[in-house]
């Protein structure tokens, strides 16, 4: 049985495609910029002789994807069509970690305690323990 070979062509607006690629590249460069030291430490705040530098942890994730598809318009039809599309998404999370306090006499680090996160972790740990112990006792 002879295989049918058919070439498909899609009209793609080259200018739009290049603009999209450029947008993606710019976004990736901005994303990679989250690895720079400037994103972790804020601008120093001067209050008299004292300098305060807040610091934070930064977590960023993102992804892009695109695809092209084509096919016949219907069963037995000779007409064909196609299209392309793409999309992406990402998120940046930031959380304060510590504050550097510098005076002419000393430099000290003031740590930031996030009580809500610690309380949630304690509740999760307690829930896990209670659940596991209940399961162990039930199994005996």
């Amino acid at each position: 049985m002879a295989e049918e070979k058919q070439e498909h062509t899609i009209d793609i607006d080259a200018a739009n495609l290049m603009a999209a690629v450029e947008d993606v590249n710019q976004t990736i460069e901005k994303f990679l910029d989250t690895a720079s030291v400037g994103k972790v430490y804020a601008e120093p705040i001067r209050v008299g002789d004292t300098v305060i530098i807040p610091s934070a942890e930064v977590v960023a994730g993102m992804g892009f994807g695109m695809g092209v598809g084509f096919g016949r318009k219907g069963e037995g039809s000779q007409e064909s069509g196609g299209g392309s599309g793409g999309g992406g998404g990402g998120q940046v999370l930031s959380r304060p970690v510590a504050v550097i306090v510098a005076t002419p006499e000393e430099v000290r680090i003031e740590h930031v305690y996030d009580r809500t996160k610690i309380a949630l972790a304690a509740l999760t740990a307690a829930g896990f323990m209670v659940g596991m112990v209940a399961r162990m006792l039930r199994g005996r």
């Binding site: 990736i28 690895a35 720079s36 030291v37 430490y41 942890e57 930064v58 960023a60 990402g90 510098a102």
Partner: peptide, 26 residues
Amino acid sequence: YKIIPVSRAYGVILPKVAGGFVWNHP
């Protein structure tokens, strides 16, 4: 004093797709 803040970043840039993950901390 001269104070120099130091940061460290870890990340994964996925080679097949345009995307990745970066964790940066003081």
